[in-house]
């Protein structure tokens, strides 16, 4: 899984630099999250701006991440239309806030 991690104070930004977030990517994403989550202070920001397609396994991985965070905030930055629609269809947009850019997401904790 191609990705970048940036720690910004209370926020951890995980930028997924892949265009498909699918069954192939999901296990790796989950392992990465299991490794990251104890060190996430308050807020996980998932930058999905490059993800063009997310399938049910990808969505499952995002839901698992949400559960793994145990109440810490999780948000998504700039999802493409298909991803945004999937989050809305499954009401995950009620649990995960959506921001236009990383700065807006981080500003929540400032």
């Amino acid at each position: 899984m191609q990705h970048k991690i940036i720690n910004q104070g209370q926020c951890t930004v995980l930028h997924i630099t892949e265009d498909r977030f699918d069954a192939r990517l999901a296990p790796e994403f989950r392992n990465k999250l299991a490794e990251l989550s104890p060190n996430i202070d308050m807020h996980l920001v998932l930058d999905l701006s490059q993800v063009r397609f997310m399938d049910s396994s990808g969505l499952g991985a995002v839901m698992a991440a949400y559960k793994m965070l145990r109440g810490k905030k999780m948000s998504v930055v700039n999802p493409q239309r298909a991803v945004k629609e999937l989050l809305k269809l499954t009401r995950m947009d009620q649990l995960i806030s959506c921001y236009e850019n990383v700065d807006d997401a981080i500003a929540v904790n400032a």
Binding site: L59, G60, M63, K67, K88, L89, T90, R91, M92
Partner: peptide, 8 residues
């Protein structure tokens, strides 16, 4: 628009 089954 509704949650999936078996997750929450």
């Amino acid at each position: 628009d509704s949650f999936v089954v078996g997750a929450f």
